[in-house]
């Protein structure tokens, strides 16, 4: 087990590096040059060259350049990729090109808002998806089951941004109600405002994930409920609730955990939509704005941050399999 964990941990920086490198390359092949954008009214070729030099974008992109003539390769003594790698290794994420703010500080400041959105989305998805899924399986073909399945189709069909817009418009039209505006309020500073700000939209955001989870739980549960050991448990006279929760449900958890880890990864993109629509200054909004304006350091490091979160969660998911299902052993 420990060898498995160590091996997976060793892979995390490699995956982060690979994702970071892909992002690094993609951002540099995009048309448009940041120096040109900010060069200003009195821009001259000299000023543009100075700016490119200051930003370090006048250097070759990679340590090796390809040439059309022998020896076909040229080693660059100073290049953007090596600079970037050094920054990543030393933890120096630089400053935002537009505002000049420290990227780590900006990301750290925005992380709580995005984290809360992702956490609540995951929480609501799990509660709704698992509980309704179990009930739907146990009460198969009942009115509740039909209602849940109909809701699942609805939930998977309607896009998040539409539901979020309705969430804003309907209470506003009916009751002149609007969620608090003006940025992120910490739950520790003002719990009521924080919950008013985050709970309704994350409930909406979790609908899409919850219905997917619900369908998975239902189908897995139905399969498990037909298995021999459940029949044995029932034959032993165990209380039906105990059979479902202690015996059947535990064996549906492995695929559920897999789906939940995907849910968390997609919650980041959901968080981006939610933050845009609701005007919350979280990581998603920052990321969106930075991609929009071509703020390279912010985009690069936000992608790496996100990748690290997802990879770490995948590791935790794999480890949890072993605890949830004794048949799974990592050797």
């Amino acid at each position: 087990m420990w060898r498995f964990v160590v091996r997976r941990l060793a892979f995390i920086p490699i995956i982060a590096l690979a994702i970071g490198t892909v992002t690094f390359v993609l951002l540099r092949v995009l048309p448009g040059d940041f120096a040109t954008k900010v060069c200003g009214q009195e821009c001259t070729e000299e000023r543009l060259a100075e700016l490119r030099h200051e930003l370090g974008v006048d250097k070759p992109i990679f340590p090796i350049s390809i040439q059309s003539e022998p020896p076909f390769f040229h080693l660059n003594s100073d290049d953007q990729y090596t600079d970037w790698l050094q920054d990543v290794v030393t933890g120096d994420m630089g400053t935002s090109l537009w505002g000049g703010q420290d990227v780590v500080e900006e990301i750290t400041r925005r992380l709580p808002a995005s984290f809360e959105i992702m956490f609540l989305t995951l929480l609501f998805s799990s509660i709704i998806g698992i509980s309704v899924g179990i009930l739907s399986a146990v009460m198969r073909n009942s009115p509740l089951d039909y209602a849940a399945r109909t809701f699942a189709v609805f939930g998977q069909s309607v896009p998040d941004f539409f539901l979020l817009t309705l969430l804003i418009v309907i209470p506003s039209m009916l009751w002149n109600y609007a969620s608090p505006a003006g940025g992120y309020v910490s739950i520790f500073d003002d719990p009521w405002t924080n919950l008013r700000l985050f709970v309704p939209p994350t409930l909406i955001l979790s609908v899409g994930n919850a219905v997917g989870l619900m369908r998975l739980v239902r189908s897995t549960m139905l399969e498990v409920l037909r298995s021999d050991y459940v029949r044995t448990a029932n034959a032993k006279g165990l209380h039906p609730r105990s059979v479902v929760i202690r015996h059947a449900f535990r064996n549906t958890l492995a695929p559920v955990i897999t789906v939940l880890s995907f849910t968390l990864a997609t919650a980041f993109s959901g968080s981006l939509i939610l933050e845009r629509v609701m005007g919350i200054d979280g990581l998603g909004n920052y990321f969106f704005q930075s991609v929009y304006i071509g703020d390279l350091p912010v985009v690069q490091f936000t992608v790496i941050y996100t990748a690290l979160i997802v990879v770490t969660l995948n590791l935790l998911q794999d480890i949890s399999y072993a605890y949830l299902d004794p048949r799974v052993r990592y050797q």
Binding site: I168, V169, A181, V277
Partner: peptide, 21 residues
Amino acid sequence: TDLVFITDYSQTEAQFRAGGI
């Protein structure tokens, strides 16, 4: 004077109706 950051117009209308702006 508070400048309230609202990017979306429907949110702006909602905030105005609710007295948030």
